[in-house]
Design a binder for these strands. Structure first.
Lengths: 241, 241
DNA sequence: CGTCCGCTTGAATAGTGTCAAGGTGGGTGG
DNA sequence: CCACCCACCTTGACACTATTCAAGCGGACG
């Protein structure tokens, strides 16, 4: 179904922003290492790198085996899963504060292809380092588990909300989901490519486009000055599909 | 053992089979405590119970807050997620060896409603006990993580395989999935209720029924002497569905 | 032997994918 | 600064797929 040709070449070379300086990280509260002391980082084995990727960059491929875990400082990524028959589906969308590539902690190959949906700022840590730190601070373990659980909660919502029902209801759910990504309860939505958004709800680009047109007509989606940003006025009183 | 009564009402009272005796558990290799010594269980705080539930029993409800984690010895369960608008979707199907209710480890309420799909034999352990054991045996921690990752892998397949494409392709994927549950590579499939199977692939009962009829016609699904068991002959070369 | 529950099948209808053509806007180079 | 280009979004038409409603069937069980 979602077997459409790749339109864009994915440039893969990130810009190296330097060694991560977790002690002075401005968004430590949402990151993995929120409660570490500076001294904890003194004797880590390998560096934590801070990298910037351009939009559409490929971070890694499904099946790759590269023992690094990532943490998003800013920007968004999509996790894509491909099947033997060539069909693709976006199975998750992650933003600031999320970690990904966790399966590497179990020495497993990555289960997804990961692509930046917007300019992306990540920290990359070697699993050996992370395991080392976990031993010193058992609390970290719990945090990692919480992230795992977060992923599962997302995945389950992806199934029940973004993969069930009509295209219209799935679209509305996706828009709510995107609004939540702001984290501040605001009702603005950053639109990604329609191909991508359609792949999130498992529909065709055209069907998604038509629904969005409807919603604009109905005044549920309102343009802002930024052409990529819309305001989403969703009367939570459930529109019967 | 082929005695199966289907009661519409969900009876919730399990039969208590006794305290779990992990040291002599016949299927220890697939369970959570595979590498524990007998002595490890001597000073646990609260008992590990072994319970049997009848088909269609309700184990717990989405939103319940009851600090216990379960491990399946035999039988199958469905994890159901309901939305505010009342719609339901089965988001996972778990069998022998799987654990569920892990979110309780993070002191969170259960995220699913769990119902036995077949006579179910489970062990139930208090999170306090599990955390206690984890402290003594860090290896256990890794096992729990592996289970978590397993859940995620299932969830992602559920999205990309059972929630994308036509009803026919989803049905075929579901049948492959069910065949895998055997664990022994055999091609037999135990059919659950059509309502349930339809809810797994997010379609109507009728649509699912029609596809199954097709597959029987095509000789892909073959009856066995047990009316609930079919043989699934899937030429993996995908006919473009 | 009759009832009940769940599966099957048909017919009508709404929903969705697909193909194809046309529009739009932002970026680039002249 | 404008014209052009390209990627991406939009819209229409049509075929096909899936849902819904409704009726009928059949096995399990009392």
């Amino acid at each position: 179904m979602t077997t459409r040709k790749k339109s864009r070449t994915l440039c893969t070379d990130p810009e190296w922003l330097g060694r991560a300086d977790c002690r002075h990280c401005g968004i430590r509260h949402m990151m993995l290492f929120s409660e570490f002391q500076g001294s904890d980082f003194d004797h880590i084995l390998e560096p934590i790198d801070n990298l910037r990727y351009a939009e559409n960059s490929l971070l890694y491929n499904q099946g790759d085996d590269d023992n690094k875990v990532y943490s998003i400082r800013s920007g968004f990524i999509k996790l894509v899963q491909s099947q033997r028959d060539g069909s693709l589906r976006i199975v998750r969308l992650l933003g600031p504060g999320a970690i990904f590539g966790i399966e590497a902690l179990l020495d497993m190959p990555y289960r997804h292809t990961v692509i930046a949906l917007a300019e992306l700022d990540v920290c990359r840590i070697y699993t050996a380092t992370l395991k080392h730190l976990e031993k010193e601070k058992p609390r970290l373990n719990e945090k990692v588990m919480a992230h795992w659980e977060q992923h599962l909660a997302f995945a389950d919502r992806w199934i029940s909300e973004l993969s069930s029902g009509s295209v219209r209801s799935r679209t509305l759910k996706l828009l709510s989901f995107l609004a939540e990504l702001n984290g501040d309860g605001s009702d603005t939505i950053r639109f990604f490519g329609y191909e991508d958004m359609a792949s999130m709800i498992g529909s065709s680009r055209e069907a998604f486009s038509r629904i969005v047109a409807e919603l604009k007509n109905e005044g549920v989606l309102v343009k802002t000055d930024d052409s990529q940003i819309y305001r989403f006025l969703h009367t939570d009183g459930n529109t019967t599909d």
